[in-house]
Design a protein around this nucleic acid. Structure first.
Length: 733
DNA sequence: GTGTTTACTTTTTTT
DNA sequence: AAGTAAACAC
């Protein structure tokens, strides 16, 4: 049953697999079997009797982590129980889950994603009297992120935001919440401040492995140093470093060389993925970057294939239609499955037009990135409920649901609660309890309703709430001046909400079978009624949202019933979905065409790859260059895109593109001219293609009038699918 | 306090 | 073109 190491591994790979002690640096070119090496290496370790729980493998994306885990499972045929394969961020979560108490947080902390973070920054800014018209939360958020991550300090930043930052941090603490950067930063702080704890973790993970090392940030590097001893293996490729905008620092490779002078270094340059045409093109492109570790991919097998195809559609509509019809044709002619196709785009907004065409031609597809499933309003609402139930102090999410569905707590009431909370230096939750209690509706007794279960844990009443003359605790509320009170109706509504949250807290926390309970919760708040009410003139939208919520519940169910899931429960679920931004654990039945950004495609490969929108300003992205990004990184991005292809590579560059409203002329990407011309076949938008497309449309129309093929594909836009009633592209101008 | 209309900007890439 | 936030009307 043990795999035969020698078979199917070249000498360098074998060397890498068998070197398990001591620091190891693997420079792995695109398609050089990197994942294979890593998974075999883990399998080999297990084979050597190393315990699963002392191995830690860190990846960059969830997709990569999942992929790696399942490959290991495949090779070894073992159940993976103690093995840790995760992203840096989810690894941070698991450290915090255990040890965040050392920093004075409670362990039911919330994780704020970007939207939450920006919302909070906005609130703080409003509080500090910023002129909100001129306030750019996105920009400030990015700045704060850099500050937290330690890639920038106030001496090199607009330090007029210093106070705002302090306020932001304080609010996070009050709300018992952390942001993305904290997921790396706080564990580091724990390790720095508590050497004993650090030692424990280091002792546990005796073997550490890091994938996509060129994409690690300074901060992540520090984390790695703190957690690992001598048995570190990092795998990277400086040519594929495409995350510098996020703090990734491929000089970490050099740093590693400095920090581990006794390391072993292995280069993997044999490429098993692509045809030599594609490899030649890729090498030629990347050659234009300087300051890189010299290497060239070569194919031992000398795989032959056709030329790279370049098309110049008139506009983005034609481009999308072309790609869709071309995929349809290739599927039949080359007997391919849907999931052998990848459509790569630079930016998410390019996906929209693509989706339309795929939809119109009934091509099942999967999309990653963009506004994901979890970004939809109806889903966010439900998640917010769960968040608040898990962590009552979570203001951002509380505010989201405080009047959703409508329960009569309007703007003014919220404003007042906010003022009270600020005055007390506490979360809104406390202000609500205060407001409810002070006016004679003590939670304990309840308004005569069924509050029979005594003393729910979170209702220890605040000492100051009932006394009109609070003990001089400093942060108390003046009797009447300045601090607003709520109207009677509002108080009743607030109390009812508190009661509801408490009740469901008991119902959900630490319980099993969450999915069913969540459904009951949704019934209890009459979210269905809310959906119908909100979408009165559009019951299709209501249905669609309804369906989404159902899907969400089923996702919970699948997840908690998964036998590999060692820790089902509300907290684990919430943590998970904050980090999994894509609805990427979708089914594999029959496969789907993959539509994704180049960033998302890293580490993946497809038989047939389309790179759409290869135009100047898109693939060296205009904004990226403006903001001080390097052209070299854009080139690396293009290199990554090209090297995703195994057999066929099709590139499209439009002559015109609809941008905002206007049709603008486009120039092909300068990178295209870096590909040696003899590797490219320039194609006209040939007539055979339009024949092909006419045929596809025709059959599509037949299907349409036959049986309303409700081919709802996952992903896509928020609105109900614009039922593809118009198989032909119309030019109604 | 709530619902409706109007004005306005917008995100490159991901955890 | 769309989605959000502020202004306005009930």
């Amino acid at each position: 049953m043990r795999p035969d190491w020698e078979r199917g591994l070249n000498p360098e790979q074998l060397d890498a697999v068998e070197t398990i002690e001591g620091p190891l640096l693997i420079i792995a070119g695109a398609g050089s079997g990197k994942t294979r090496v890593i998974t075999f290496r883990i399998a080999h370790m297990l084979d050597e009797g190393i315990a699963q729980h002392s191995i830690l493998a860190l990846t960059f994306t969830n997709k990569a982590a999942r992929e790696m885990a399942s490959r290991v499972r495949e090779i070894t045929g073992k159940k993976l129980q103690g093995l840790t394969v995760s992203t840096f961020h989810s690894f941070g979560v698991s450290i915090l889950r255990k040890d965040i108490g050392l920093l004075g947080y409670r362990d039911n902390y919330s994780i704020y994603d970007e939207a939450d973070r920006n919302q909070l920054i906005k609130d703080c800014a409003r509080e500090q009297g910023y002129r909100m018209e001129a306030f750019d939360a996105w920009k400030v958020g990015a700045l704060f992120s850099e500050i937290t991550a330690g890639v920038r300090d106030w001496s090199r930043a607009d330090d007029s935001y210093k106070d705002l930052y302090a306020e932001y941090r304080r609010s996070l603490k009050i709300f018992n919440a952390v942001d993305f950067d904290d997921l790396i930063g706080l564990p580091i702080r724990i390790f720095d401040d508590h050497p004993a704890t650090a030692a424990e973790w280091r002792l546990r993970y005796r073997y550490v492995m890091i994938d996509e090392f060129q994409d690690t940030s300074l901060q992540q590097y520090r984390m790695m140093k703190l957690i690992s001893g001598d048995n570190v293996c990092v795998v990277g490729d400086d040519d594929q470093s495409i995350y510098s905008w996020r703090g990734a620092n491929y000089e970490n490779i050099m740093q590693f060389e400095r920090d581990f002078p006794q390391r072993k270094e292995i280069k993997l340059e044999r490429n098993y993925r692509s045809t030599s045409t594609i490899l030649d093109a890729a090498n030629a492109i990347i050659q234009n970057n300087d300051n890189r570790k010299e290497k060239a991919l070569w194919s031992p097998a000398g795989l032959d294939g056709g030329l790279i195809e370049l098309y110049r559609p008139d506009d983005d509509g034609e481009e999308a239609d072309f790609i869709a019809t071309s995929i349809r044709a290739a599927k039949v002619e080359e007997q391919r499955k849907w999931d052998e196709f990848g459509i790569l785009i630079r930016t998410n907004n390019l996906a929209r037009r693509m989706e339309e065409s795929l939809l119109a031609q009934d091509i099942p597809y999967r999309i990653s990135g963009g506004s994901s499933f979890f970004g939809r309003k109806e889903i966010k609402d439900i998640i917010s409920y769960l968040r608040v139930i898990a962590n009552p102090d979570d203001d951002i999410n509380l505010l989201r649901i405080i009047n959703t569905p409508r329960r009569g707590i309007g703007k003014t009431s919220i404003e007042r609660l906010n003022t009270i909370a600020r005055a007390m230096g506490s979360p809104i939750r406390t202000a609500m309890e205060h407001a409810a209690a002070r006016d004679g509706i003590p939670l304990r007794e309840g308004g005569g309703e069924a509050v029979t279960q005594g003393g729910s844990p979170s209702t220890e009443e605040p000492a100051f709430a009932l006394s009109a003359d609070p003990p001089g605790a400093g942060k108390d509320i003046p009797a009447d001046d300045g601090v607003p009170r709520l109207g009677d109706k509002a108080i009743a509504d607030v109390s009812a909400l508190l009661e509801l949250l408490d009740q469901w807290r008991d119902e959900l926390l630490g319980k099993k079978r969450i999915a069913d309970r969540v459904r009951k919760l949704i019934d209890a708040i009459d979210y269905w009624g809310y959906l119908i009410e909100e979408n009165r003139q559009n019951d299709k939208a209501a249905k669609w949202k309804f369906h989404n919520v159902e899907t969400f519940i089923n996702m919970i169910k699948d997840w908690e019933e998964d036998p590999d899931n060692l820790d089902p429960g509300l907290f684990a679920w919430l943590n998970r979905i904050t980090l999994v931004t894509r609805d990427d654990d979708s089914d594999e039945e029959g496969g789907k065409v993959n539509l994704m950004t180049i960033h998302a495609a890293k580490g993946l490969e497809f038989e047939v790859v389309y790179i759409a929108g290869c135009e100047d300003g898109i693939i060296p992205h205009a904004r990226s260059l403006e903001e001080g990004g390097e052209i070299a990184e854009e080139r690396r991005l293009f290199y990554v895109a090209v090297t995703r292809a195994r057999q066929r590579l099709i590139i499209t560059a439009c002559a015109k593109r609809r941008k905002l409203k206007a049709l603008v002329d486009c120039v092909p990407s300068p990178f295209l001219s870096e590909i040696p011309p003899h590797l490219i076949s320039m194609r006209e938008m040939a007539s055979e293609v339009s024949e092909e497309s006419a045929e596809a449309m025709f059959s599509k129309m037949k299907g349409m009038f036959g049986g309303e093929g409700d081919g709802l594909v996952d992903g896509g836009t928020d609105a109900p699918k614009p039922s593809p009633k118009r198989p032909e592209r119309k030019r109604v101008d």
